[in-house]
């Protein structure tokens, strides 16, 4: 039988983590499925389990200084219920997994898995979200893109916990999100695109583009975004080939059980093109 901890507070959880290497169990939806061994048989874990999904401090969603602070153990369903979460983000969440899984799965879990197909990530990259990481020795904050290192690798040390996600409280004039799965209901993502932009008088004043599941980590390219910001819609049409070329270089998908590298790349470019050409419409 694996050992387990069930601390009532965050500080207690951090104390346990400081002393023991643990497998952190939040909603469990990914871990339990990964560790499933067969009919009527328990999963086996190497390390003691640290249960955190009941800790109140990790479930709060609040607005502070025009920033949304989301506790890492807020479930996807709780995010959908919250008044503070932008509709743009809710659109993303509503397309994740299924209702019973959303009742368990947490935003922190989705992030920490660091899957290239994690559905909260393109939005969080697009908004330059920050993550708060705590250990017994203190708190540090990292931009989401620095937190995600590689597929299945995040920036947590053994003694650390992802506690909050901090998002700017903003909405964009234009929000376009497309998740492509093998089917409409409950699918892992084979490619996704999130485009957000503000436009005034025929030009782009702000813009971010993020792509999921088409490279080891989420694809976002500030340099190219900078190239587009300030341009009129007509100019965008002119520089489109340069822009698409740039994305072509950094989109590096793979073939797997769900799709092909070729499709993933081509559909990503088409989605970017479609979004940029649609800005003026």
């Amino acid at each position: 039988m694996v050992n387990a901890f069930h601390p009532e507070t965050l500080s207690k959880a951090l104390e346990i983590l400081a002393e023991n290497p643990c497998t952190i169990m939040a909603g469990g939806t990914d871990l339990m499925a990964q560790k499933a061994r067969g009919f009527a048989i328990r999963p086996v874990f190497e390390h003691p389990l640290l249960f955190i999904n009941h800790i109140d401090e990790l479930k709060q969603i609040s607005l502070e200084d025009n920033e949304i602070h989301i506790g890492a153990c807020a479930t996807l369903s709780e995010l959908l219920e919250s008044q503070l979460i932008a509709d743009t983000f809710k659109d993303v969440i509503r397309q994740m997994a299924s209702p019973p899984i959303r009742n368990l799965a947490t935003i922190g879990g989705n992030i920490c898995n660091a899957s290239p197909a994690a559905d909260t990530l393109p939005y969080l990259y697009a908004l330059d979200a920050q993550v708060e990481i705590q250990s017994q020795t203190g708190l540090r904050t990292l931009p989401i893109r620095e937190f995600i290192k590689a597929p299945k690798t995040n920036g947590l040390q053994n003694n650390e916990l992802l506690t909050h996600i901090v998002l700017p409280n903003k909405e964009f004039d234009i929000n376009f999100y497309r998740k492509l799965g093998q089917r409409r209901g409950m699918s892992l993502t084979k490619a996704s695109f999130h485009g957000l932009a503000n436009v005034t008088n025929g030009s782009v004043t702000d813009l971010c583009l993020a792509l999921g599941s088409v490279a080891p980590t989420i694809v976002r390219c500030e340099l190219t975004e900078q190239l587009l910001i300030g341009q009129s819609f007509i100019n965008i049409e002119e520089i489109l080939p340069t822009v698409l070329n740039k994305y072509s270089e950094i989109i590096k998908p793979i073939d797997d059980a769900r799709s092909t590298a070729k499709y993933r790349k081509e559909v990503s470019i088409r989605l970017i093109k479609n979004f940029l050409l649609g800005l003026g419409k």
């Binding site: 093998q182 089917r183 409409r184 209901g185 699918s187 892992l188 059980a257």
Partner: peptide, 27 residues
């Protein structure tokens, strides 16, 4: 349409219901 099942070197590529998708109520 969606039920893709292929083999590679004699091994099924889609080995579970996460990868082998059958229609849901939304499909």
């Amino acid at each position: 349409t969606i039920e893709v099942m292929e083999t590679s070197q004699g091994r099924l590529i889609q080995t579970n219901l996460t990868n082998y998708k059958i229609p849901t109520a939304m499909d």
